[in-house]
């Protein structure tokens, strides 16, 4: 594979993991626009640890731990809010994290931070596949059942004994951990981090991939992220128009397939039509 393809592959993997981070809270019905903030925590956390001489796996694990701890602490106050308030709170959190980093000279402030060590495409791919497997597994358990139930009707789920708050906090924390992982992988792939990159747009795209792929199955984010990361690459000829097209595609897609591309009934039809044809 060419260097360019590997580069795109690594970016795709980071997008997929970020999309799963967005998926965890969205699956429970809440929109988290703080993904970029947790990615920044992961990226800078692992960068600092690596630069302090830790081995790469340990520093990435440390960064994931940091992101999930912060996620856990933030989730309690943030999840008291609902709907739009929650979305705005997560967005504010993300902006605060980035703004704090930009104010810290020790983290390189606006000029960014060079990271010791480089992570190639293949290890990133294995980690990504692990993440996909993990989320697919979680979605197949009762925990996944509860997430869907809370998204469909939180009060209805509570009547059957589902402690909605706990489930939401767990999902939010796992999402934070995944975002941290995505950030750490990103930092080590490019060996350089820059706080400005972790802006609202990044969170927005993670959410878009997930919603366009569909929330109904744990494969939705994978489909969404893959399609919408790779399609613009294929459209490279029409370089400047590709994001115009992207915007239009989103609008049309929401009109035609508001539940996302990859729904349960889609899979059901696929499986039940096969034998007949």
């Amino acid at each position: 594979m060419s260097g360019y393809a590997l580069q795109i592959g690594a970016i795709l993997c980071v997008h997929v993991i970020a999309a799963y981070a967005a998926y965890m809270t969205l699956a429970a019905g809440q929109l988290n626009l703080g993904i970029a903030g947790f990615m920044a925590l992961g990226a800078y956390g692992s960068a600092v640890l690596s630069n302090a001489g830790w081995a790469m796996p340990q520093s990435i694990a440390g960064a994931v731990l940091l992101a999930s701890l912060v996620g856990l602490c933030v989730s309690y106050p943030v999840l008291r809010a609902r709907g739009i308030y929650l979305t705005i709170a997560t967005l504010a959190f993300s902006e605060v994290v980035v703004a704090l980093i930009l104010n810290m000279e020790s983290l390189g402030a606006a000029s960014g931070l060079v990271v010791v060590g480089h992570l190639g495409f293949w290890p990133i791919l294995w980690v990504t596949l692990g993440v996909v497997a993990l989320v697919v597994f979680l979605a197949s358990t009762r925990f996944g059942l509860c997430l869907t139930a809370i998204r469909n009707d939180a009060q209805g789920a509570a009547v059957f004994g589902v402690r909605t708050r706990r489930i939401e906090v767990t999902a939010f924390t796992i999402g934070a951990a995944l975002a941290g992982l995505a950030g750490a992988l990103y930092a080590h792939h490019f060996s350089y981090v820059e706080a400005q990159r972790f802006n609202v747009l990044l969170s927005t795209y993670a959410v878009l991939y997930t919603l366009l792929g569909g929330l109904q199955t744990p494969l939705g984010p994978l489909v969404g992220a893959a399609l919408f990361t790779l399609a613009p690459e294929l459209l490279r000829g029409t370089d400047e128009w590709r994001y115009v097209t992207f915007g239009a595609v989103i609008v049309v897609l929401m009109l035609l397939r508001s539940e996302g591309l990859f729904t349960r009934s889609f899979i059901h039809n696929l499986m039940h039509r096969r034998p007949a044809t």
């Binding site: 059942l145 469909n152 009707d153 109904q216």
Partner: peptide
């Protein structure tokens, strides 16, 4: 529930299974 509180993204079996939660 009188007004049906089905979880629309779950199958019939999964909806029933939700009752076993506790």
């Amino acid at each position: 529930f009188q007004n049906l509180r089905m979880m629309k993204h779950l199958t019939v079996l999964e909806n029933i299974m939700l009752g076993q939660h506790t």
